[in-house]
Design a protein around this nucleic acid. Structure first.
Lengths: 222, 222
DNA sequence: CTTAAATATGACCAATCAGTCACATTTTGT
DNA sequence: ACAAAATGTGACTGATTGGTCATATTTAAG
């Protein structure tokens, strides 16, 4: 989505610009985040940004895409078929997420903060669409488990996928709610979201899995 | 929280002002909502608002309180002890919510839209606190069920309460996601959120209950 | 009827921001 | 060395906002 002008930039300058905006959008809402402020930090003219990107949303979508690509490279190697059950797979996705976070703190912070924007007026349509895709992905997963006879089949797939999505988001929110992670502070200290918190993260994931497993698994006949 | 000037107003004028702002905050974010716009609609001077309220947040908190009081009057009559199990109780809370919605559409729309503001920068602290209180309330409920030997006890109460809270919010989000309800449209048409949708609402609640019941209920020994 | 207290008013302030555009500078190709 | 294409620039626009305050109007009291 960026214009060719942006692609023609020095790698280092492109990286500088990208990172400055990642930092801004990692701590602020889309609407709160200020291009004016970032260009001042960067010491470049505001007009330049509009040589690189169509508008603020274009820039934002570029950042989402870049970070998603990096995160994908960590997550896509995790395969359902390498795990005995869905929940081992689910857990390992978080383990991969931890690695991504440790090695790409800024990108991780940015993606973490995306959730704050779910209802920001200017980006609501974009996020509704993204959420739709995510849930659709979960639907496929759930359908597969039902086919395998491992998940219950008495509730619509749609509902189960939605629930699974909500649990995924819920884990992050729970970690913030309980102050196990404090993104605002750790980004300030240039630390990853889960710095030294791998055990807490996975323990929480395990707790949530233990909680909701009976919701999805076919209950044993009595 | 409003100043005495506001209390001294004619009932009808007070109501007019309150409703105009409810309408604005029901369709916009706190930060998006414009006092300037509403006073123009009302045909009164902007300064008047600041005779009535300390500032925008003060006005907003007043609206929250007013609507909460009305909703409470519908919900507080539902008692756990009048129900055979927690889920019948849980379901009836939604039934009461439906009545509240049908009889107080504007207030209902406003409260529905609160969730959009969960992450609005200017009100985040306020909402974090409110959420904390809500979850604390759920903790009490969960603890009671555990005491009764009806809920499982192998997962921290905190986690279960959080999950229950998320399910509650999730139901509303699911109804919007699936377009069973479309608040933006129904408020425009001066209709309640759940106009003619009582069956859909309760069916969804039942579906969610059926889904998560096994997550909370003590599983039968095998 | 007069005075004083209570309200209502709306022009005005300071701040913000996304986005533009005429112009300056640099890079490229020949 | 020159022209032309590509980039960089930052003052400026237009719009919006929450909140203020000196002043005008209404109401209540004596």
């Amino acid at each position: 989505m960026p214009k060719s002008t942006f692609q023609n930039l020095d790698n280092s300058k492109r990286k500088q610009i990208t990172e400055a905006f990642l930092r801004e959008f990692a701590i602020k809402t889309f609407d709160e985040a200020s291009i004016t402020v970032v260009v001042k930090q960067l010491g470049i003219a505001k007009g330049s940004i509009y040589q690189y990107f169509k508008d603020k949303l274009d820039l934002y979508m570029y950042l989402i895409q870049e970070c998603s690509i990096v995160k994908m490279s960590y997550v896509q190697s995790i395969k359902r078929e390498d795990h005995p059950d869905f929940w081992a797979y689910f857990r390992n996705l978080y383990a991969a997420g931890y690695e991504f976070d440790a090695q790409n703190p800024l990108q991780s912070h940015f993606l973490h903060n995306l959730i704050q924007n779910l209802n920001s007026p200017s980006v609501k349509p974009l996020f509704d669409q993204m959420m739709g895709q995510t849930i659709a992905g979960f639907e496929t997963l759930v359908a597969k488990e039902i086919e395998l006879g491992l998940f219950r089949s008495d509730v619509p797939v749609k509902t189960m996928a939605f629930m699974l999505y909500k649990v995924g988001v819920g884990i992050q929110e729970y970690l913030e709610h309980t102050k196990i992670i404090e993104p605002k502070q750790s980004i300030y200290k240039n630390q990853p979201v889960y710095q030294n918190k791998k055990d807490f993260l996975l323990a929480t994931v395990d707790e949530f899995i233990s909680l909701i497993k009976p919701t999805f698994n076919k209950s044993p006949l009595i």
